[in-house]
Design a protein around this nucleic acid. Structure first.
Lengths: 196, 196
DNA sequence: ATACTACTGCTACAACTGTAGCTTTAATGA
DNA sequence: TCATTAAAGCTACAGTTGTAGCAGTAGTAT
């Protein structure tokens, strides 16, 4: 890991690039079930044993893909109201869960790979941290009481989406983002997420 | 499946019993990662090929275990208030997710096995259906407006638990059931889950 | 009793997964 | 340019997973 930084254009770096590209391409084209070290190795032209050594399993591959993708400048939207912000965030989550295969694949992999579980946890923690500003703005506007626990509120707003789309696998209802956001915003206004 | 009913004490039935017992025992003792057709076959004394034929994969085994377990007389608690009922339900979910290995194992398996996914979906649908009575009582008491969508309310109350304990794998906070239930109940009282 | 049917047991095999040990190659630094 | 070193490539192998085809056996019906 540290060596890749020391030799940015070196062989290790190109190998990593080829392998991660192959992983994502395979995932997009043939789905999570088709992902295996052997397939990715073949597709990338990198030898099996090399992939096994550096990434250990499919979860490791996906974790690396996610770590790279997480390294962006994403910030939660600012629509002017708490509920509007939450709806916007939920719409993005909805898209990620229905259109992007990486997210669901990583959730699946997280049950079989410690690396994937850790990468996913880190990713979500970071995103929820960035969303804390959204809650702060709502407090400053006086929409919700000071002392509102940002994390609890954000979980309440987003968890129903994961529950329905990932665990229950219900048909994706387009109103889901609004309903979940409205519920959480309503509860927050009534002070249900204040810590003290 | 239908034949097992026709020959209740027959060889097929005893084979099924031995295999399901072995599956559950293995799961409890050594965890989900240790579950494989071969291990279960060895442990049950039933031949590998038989288990492969009848259950196909680990997801099939777990699905059968769950189907059997789901066939009980469970009813949601009646504490006299909506929030009390939701807290009680959440406490049960919390126990199931932290103490009982079957639930989490089935969630994990549901990403790799259609049978497991379907069994889980059916299980949850049934439980949410049974919980609808809890919402109806709250409406009759005048706690929440008529027209409240029971399913949405129940999802809002329970989803944060699954999100934190299964997906985020945060440390189990004992206050989680209360917080999630309070949020959903508060939103419901304010009419956030009414359909019309 | 006996034939019939459904299911289990058995053997063998093919494919996939993961690792060990060694050789070769490429990047680095003197 | 050349020695050093880290990482990639290669071969071979062991273990696991899943399947096909056939033989044997328990339950059912006449």
């Amino acid at each position: 890991m540290t060596d890749r930084a020391r030799r940015p254009g070196g062989r290790s770096a190109t190998v990593r690039r080829r392998v991660l590209d192959a992983t994502l391409a395979q995932l997009v084209q043939h789905g999570y079930d088709s992902l295996s070290i052997d397939v990715v190795a073949e597709r990338s032209g990198v030898h099996r044993t090399t992939v096994y050594r550096r990434w250990r399993d499919v979860g490791g591959l996906l974790a690396d893909v996610l770590n790279e993708a997480a390294d962006d400048a994403w910030l939660p939207p600012d629509t002017g109201t708490l509920e509007g912000d939450l709806v916007a965030v939920n719409r993005e989550i909805c898209t990620a869960l229905t259109d992007e295969p990486v997210t669901v694949a990583l959730i699946a992999a997280s049950f079989r790979s410690g690396q994937a579980a850790e990468a996913l946890r880190a990713f979500w923690t970071e995103r929820y941290d960035r969303c804390a500003g959204l809650v702060r703005r709502a407090v400053e506007r006086g929409e919700i009481p000071a002392g509102t626990d940002a994390y609890r509120l954000l979980i309440a707003a987003t968890a129903p989406l994961y529950h329905e789309l990932v665990l229950l696998r219900s048909a994706a209802d387009a109103r889901l983002p609004e309903i979940a956001a409205r519920g959480a915003a309503t509860a927050a206004r009534a002070g249900a997420f204040t810590t003290r």
